[in-house]
Write a protein that binds this DNA or RNA. Structure first.
Length: 254
DNA sequence: ATGGCTACGATCCGTAGA
């Protein structure tokens, strides 16, 4: 089974890139973030034509998550249970005996801001929920834009980013707490080349300079991690005309 | 010099992203 996650930064704008990419990468499940699309305007026909069923939870302008899969999703749930949030950031679905959770973590804007506090509270609620979810679903995959670069090697210029939002210690701690409930960073299960990132700023020719962050992640429970045979980031779509600022992340489960 | 894109929904700029 091939799992993927991609922050598309507008499903409407990126639909051609998405259909092209899934046609050649052929993920069985792909989690999308920042769809920025109301459910009533979800491009259901195009997604179906590409060979995918879909579950989605969107809103106008901001946020929005979707899970596309070759199999019909069951047990679809939106949001973190008990955590009231207007922002559509969390979507879960089951495929066979595998539970897939699609996440779009808050950006956090700046350390110390209200949005940063919201980000840390969101992570707290997420962790509590996932701790239960992993007991219910031993085959648990958590994919998405987590908006945290877990280590300095996930940052192009750790000195410049030191203490900033996405790399601050409380955010990294929140990320590590997800691992502590029994999840593994699929990317780090394997030897990887240096300076691999999943996001590059649109400005400053950041992509050309490979000035990026690795903030999009696939976390796997032990049962799935034991069967994970590959994990990589595909930079190719970032090179296209009018790209998303994020690249898709892939993991193969035997 | 802390900018520099991009998407959105609103107008011809503000908000947000990371």
């Amino acid at each position: 089974m091939r799992l993927a996650t991609w922050n598309v930064n507008s499903l409407k704008v990126r639909l051609p890139h998405l259909t092209e990419w899934v046609a050649h990468a052929k993920p069985d499940v792909i989690c999308l973030q920042e769809t920025k699309t109301e459910d009533a305007k979800f491009p259901g026909a195009e997604v179906e034509a590409a060979g995918y069923r879909a579950a989605y939870a969107g809103q106008k302008t901001y946020n929005g998550v979707a899970i596309l899969a070759t199999q019909q999703p069951t047990g679809v749930s939106v949001g973190i249970p008990g955590h009231d949030d207007e922002q559509k950031r969390v979507l879960a679905a089951t495929f066979g005996n595998t539970r897939v959770i699609c996440l779009y973590a808050p950006n956090g804007q700046a350390v110390g801001s209200d949005k940063y506090d919201y980000k840390l509270r969101w992570y707290g609620a997420l962790r509590a929920w996932l701790a239960e979810e992993i007991k219910r679903h031993p085959r648990l995959a958590v994919l998405g834009d987590l908006n945290v670069a877990p280590e300095d090697r996930d940052v192009h210029d750790p000195k410049a980013w030191e203490g900033q939002v996405h790399v601050s210690e409380p955010e990294r701690q929140a990320f590590r707490l997800l691992l502590e409930i029994g999840l593994k960073d699929a990317f780090r299960l394997f030897e990887q080349p240096e300076k691999i990132y999943s996001w590059w700023d649109y400005r400053m020719m950041a992509f050309r300079r490979n000035a990026g962050l690795r903030i999009d992640h696939i976390l796997l429970s032990d049962a799935l991690a034991a069967r994970c045979i590959a994990c990589s980031i595909d930079k190719a779509p970032r090179k296209l005309e009018r790209p998303s600022d994020h690249a898709p992340v892939l993991a193969d489960i035997d």
